[in-house]
Simulated assay, not measured.
Amino acid sequence: MSTHPPVAIVTGASRGIGQAIALRLARDGHAVAVNYAGHRTGADETVAAITAAGGHAIAVPADVSQADEVAGLFAAARRAFGRIDVVVNSAGIMSLAPLAAGDLAGFDRIVAVNLRGAFLVLSHAAREVADGGRIVALSSSVIAKAFPGYGAYIAAKAGVEGLVRVLANELRGRGITVNAIAPGPVATELFLTGKSEQQITQAVQATPLERLGTPEDIAAAVAFLAGPDGGWINAQVLRANGGFA
């Protein structure tokens, strides 16, 4: 049996949910490749927190919508740690616009990061994750709500859920699980930016637990799927949302 820690890649891990996932997986014993696109300071802080606690981590820049940069991310993780056991695709963006506005540039950007990015990360994970490993993608519970203005975001996240189910079937025989986590409203910059106090209050009231989720709530769900207790969960979407949807 190998004495080396399992190795995880977490995309979008410089802040918010991705950062919490990286910290939690490190706490659970994983060496972590902390991916970021534009927030280098946050990635460095994540790595510093992991190493200060006795763990192992590196920060790796990569825009998940760019094929060569995703390839570089996986190559950097393998160079640093020798193997890849867990991949969590948490990178994502969100902007809101009604379909009637015809914001094609906004639509293309959301699809590029949230869906094309997921496709690229999952594709590399399928080739590079060790047998018996774990692949987790981030979706969203807003899919079930169909709120006005969320068309592009929902379309991209629905596509992510489709990719997860297909990949789980394609990896038959290798003991690799492929699942999605669909958070509800979580108190992150991504969720809070551009929302009024009334909109935030409505989100809280729509949740039976009467609070927004925390990044740590979602990280705990990812840790379950990435750990030994999640080994029989495959091709599923876990809606970690406090009852929001």
Rank of each mutant, 00 (worst) to 15 (best):
A144V: 15
E210T: 08
N241F: 15
P208S: 04
S140Q: 08
S2A: 11
S90G: 10
A26R: 04
I84E: 10
Q198I: 06
S90P: 07
P5V: 03
L225I: 12
E45W: 00
H39K: 05
A59E: 00
L25R: 04
I93C: 15
A43Y: 02
A187W: 04
L192D: 04
G230A: 11
D68R: 10
F224K: 11
V87G: 05
A52V: 00
D108N: 15
F119T: 15
A155I: 09
D28W: 03
G72H: 02
R109M: 10
S140E: 05
G102P: 11
V222K: 09
A48P: 00
V166H: 04
V47R: 00
G29Y: 02
A156H: 07
A76C: 02
R83D: 10
S123A: 14
T193E: 12
T193C: 06
P6I: 05
L212C: 05
V222Q: 11
G82A: 06
R109I: 09
I58H: 01
V70S: 01
S139F: 08
L115C: 13
D217E: 12
A59R: 01
H30C: 06
R134N: 11
A182L: 07
L225R: 07
D85M: 12
L120A: 13
L23M: 11
Y150T: 00
V88T: 07
G162A: 02
R27D: 10
G92Q: 08
A77N: 07
I176G: 04
V160Y: 02
V86P: 08
I135T: 14
A22I: 04
V70D: 01
G242D: 14
F147Y: 14
L23E: 10
R116W: 12
V111W: 15
D103K: 09
F244N: 15
Q205C: 01
V121E: 08
A97G: 09
A221T: 11
L122A: 15
H39P: 03
V111R: 13
A13C: 07
L23S: 06
K157T: 02
P148R: 04
S141C: 13
I154R: 05
R15H: 13
R239V: 15
N114E: 14
P5L: 03
A156P: 08
I135K: 12
L238K: 14
